[in-house]
């Protein structure tokens, strides 16, 4: 979340990357696989670069690098989270994040479910994207980078449209499957596993909070 929300520029993004990499290395997270999987979002990153590099900001290329690193950071963090956490843990995490919104009458459990499903689907969608790219290349589609951005972005339509279509179909199938198993948006839920905070959880949450305060206050 810090990757997308902070407003302190590329230096902060680099720092967040360093913190994430250090934490992943210390925690024996499968960092190599997560970083390698970033190659699959190259088309998306190119669109982001194209959108930022030609803006009216004073340092468009630095802005573009910052934007790419932010999206990459969100992507890699999500990949690491998905790898090291169980589905139930992820669900619990998102529910806790959305808990304050219950005061406004928002159904946090449904939001949490949407987040868990979105994060879980990410790797399979990327795998599908890779397959679509190979198949379109066999038809003659070219995805190389040229000098002009607009035609190059359009070249990715043979990947982007089938991927989007497939994602919608996947989502629709999943919704039908969940309804068929009796899932409804309304209705009380029970929890099979009760999560309890340990001292370490409180310590790390405190560190995270302190860091967020530092980012927001000492600009």
């Amino acid at each position: 979340m810090l990757f997308s929300l902070h407003d302190r520029g590329i230096k902060m993004t680099i720092m967040l990357w360093l913190i994430m990499l250090t934490a992943s290395l210390l925690g024996d997270a499968p960092l190599k696989e997560s970083l390698t999987s970033m190659t699959r979002i190259i088309p998306l990153l190119m669109i982001i670069v194209a959108g930022n590099a030609f803006g009216s900001a004073s340092d468009p290329w630095i802005n573009a690098c910052d934007a790419v690193m932010r999206v990459g950071g969100v992507f890699v963090t999500a990949a690491i989270l998905v790898t090291i956490c169980s589905q139930a843990e992820l669900m619990y995490f998102w529910e806790a994040c959305f808990k304050p919104l219950e005061l406004c009458g928002v159904s946090t459990r449904e939001w949490a479910l949407v987040m868990v499903i979105a994060v879980r689907f990410f790797p399979s969608i990327l795998e599908e994207m890779e397959r679509i790219k190979t198949a379109q290349m066999a038809r003659g589609a070219k995805f190389s980078i040229g000098y002009s951005w607009l035609p190059d972005v359009r070249r990715f339509l043979p990947i982007l449209i089938p991927t989007l279509t497939l994602s919608i179909y996947h989502a629709s199938d999943l919704a039908v499957a969940m309804q068929a198993r009796g899932y409804r948006l309304s209705g009380a839920r029970t929890r099979f596993r009760e999560f309890r905070l340990s001292v370490w959880d409180i310590f790390l949450a405190g560190c995270g909070l302190a860091f967020s305060v530092w980012v927001s206050v000492f600009r």
């Binding site: 198949a135 066999a138 038809r139 003659g140 449209i161 497939l166």
Partner: peptide
Amino acid sequence: EGKTCLAFQNPEKLFF
């Protein structure tokens, strides 16, 4: 290169 075509399962998924 350019002399072969490879159609994966369900090639209609490639429509765009």
